[in-house]
Amino acid sequence: MNRLRIRWTKEGRTRFLSARDTASVWERAVRRAGLPIAYSEGFTPHARISFPDALPVGVASTGEYAELTFVAPVAPADDLGRLSATLPEGMDVLTWTDVPAGAPRLASLLPATLWELVWPPVDATALTTLLRDRCEDLLAASSAEVVRQRPDGARTLDVRPAVVALAVAARPAPDGAGARTVLRAVLRNDAPIIRPTDLLAALGDGFAPPALVRRVAQGAPTDAGLDEALTGAVEPVEPELVAGAA
């Protein structure tokens, strides 16, 4: 069995693809790239490309992961390069690792997520102060219950246990058009999974929804942020303030 784990992006317009759309896009890209992907048994075989968890429609990501199973050995540098090139614009393969026999499941390497929420270039100073205060309050609290409305009814969740670290900053704009408030959060992925919308609900009201939500990376939570799952590189919770980093 030849398996590879990869980290990939879902940026730009591809952030509007649903989980079902995304699976088809990957399956066809793998076929176009001519990779010897394995297929599941059964009435309607599917390419063995597994995604540990779905991303909400509209959320961008540089922290998507997948495990691909092949029926023959592949040359990752060449083959994944070809795959990355034939994936739609916005989807790129960033890194890959082999999967040795007996390796832990991919999902177990992804206990936490670093999220980034970016607001429009409006009220950055006041909004940054407001969110910083709210984040301090949340970190100081022992619990923070929110009600999640779903078609099948309302559900009360405690957000606080999932929160590992929070950081807020105003990021200057590259073109000087105005700074943007950036909130970064390391959230645990344990069930029940707490999403950025739940976190925002726990932070209260008085601010608009962010213009863009991004899943930056996944891995093991640390004091500073998280250690990225495939490379171990440190992803700090403190936002980068370099102009243009958004």
Partner: peptide, 21 residues
Amino acid sequence: MPAASGPSAPPAPDVLGVAPV
């Protein structure tokens, strides 16, 4: 008191960070 999560209502005028249309 649990806060509401899910699709957000139109923001009130005193809300910060409202994206200009």
